Amino acid sequence: MVLRLVLGTVFTAMAVGQLASFGAMPEILAAYEVVEGGAATALAVTLIAGELLCGLWFLLRPRSSARTPVWVYTGVSLLWAGLAVQGFLRGLTVENCGCFGTYLTQSLGWPVLVQDGLLLVYAGVLLRGVRRQGSAPRTHSSDTKVDSP
């Protein structure tokens, strides 16, 4: 539960920072030289929506066993990590990684890669928990009523 609260806080803060600087987000994402123009705007909308969805879900329902926010968190983490790794490997100069929009800016480098790696580790932990929940035997409470047709 603590992990979900921490991740919910981080992802909600990321989304709020990106929303507050939405006009700059397409240009920030275009610096990774993967998308530009309308595609960069669509990517910004996708990232922000995903961050808000799972961030708020983790904060408001940290004990939820729903798989959707875990998969959304994993998808957003993969997108950010993919952008960072390919940009780093190509030697791009990215002055602002964009994680918090125009706030708390960091240039693309090892610290960003480590942070993205940690997000992926956390995604693995969350996915493992979801898988364990899905494979756990279901037990019925003695006070559960079963109506027959």
Rank of each mutant, 00 (worst) to 15 (best):
V2H: 10
L3Y: 06
L3G: 03
R4H: 14
L5K: 05
L7C: 01
T9G: 15
T9L: 12
F11E: 02
T12A: 15
A13L: 11
A13E: 07
A13F: 10
A13D: 08
A15V: 04
G17Y: 14
L19H: 04
A20W: 09
F22Y: 13
F22L: 11
G23N: 05
A24G: 07
P26Q: 02
P26T: 06
I28W: 04
I28Y: 06
L29N: 07
A30G: 05
A30V: 06
Y32R: 00
Y32S: 02
Y32H: 07
E33K: 07
V34P: 00
V35T: 02
V35F: 13
A39N: 00
T41A: 11
L43N: 05
V45N: 03
L47G: 03
I48H: 05
A49G: 08
G50I: 07
E51W: 05
L52H: 11
L53F: 15
G55Y: 00
F58R: 01
L59M: 13
L60S: 04
R61S: 12
R63T: 05
R63W: 11
R63Q: 14
R63H: 12
S64L: 04
S64Y: 05
S65A: 02
A66R: 06
R67G: 15
R67C: 06
R67H: 08
P69N: 08
W71A: 13
V72W: 05
V72R: 03
T74N: 03
G75Q: 11
V76Q: 10
S77T: 15
L78H: 13
L79D: 07
L79M: 14
A81G: 12
A81N: 09
L83G: 07
A84D: 11
A84G: 01
G87I: 03
G87F: 07
L89N: 11
R90W: 12
R90I: 09
R90N: 13
L92K: 09
L92T: 09
L92F: 03
T93S: 14
V94P: 01
V94K: 00
V94G: 02
N96M: 07
N96P: 06
C97N: 10
G98E: 06
G98F: 02
G98N: 02
C99L: 13
C99I: 01
C99W: 15
F100N: 11
T102V: 11
T102I: 01
T102G: 10
T102R: 12
Q106N: 08
S107K: 08
L108M: 10
W110D: 08
P111A: 14
V112N: 07
V114Y: 14
V114W: 14
Q115V: 08
G117H: 09
L118C: 13
L118W: 14
L118Q: 04
L119D: 02
Y122E: 08
A123R: 00
L126M: 03
L127N: 03
G129R: 05
V130C: 06
R132M: 15
R132L: 14
R132K: 09
Q133R: 10
S135N: 09
S135Q: 11
P137I: 00
T139P: 00
H140A: 14
S141N: 12
S141M: 13
S141A: 15
S142D: 13
S142M: 11
S142L: 13
T144L: 14
K145P: 12
V146Y: 14
D147R: 03
S148A: 10
P149T: 08
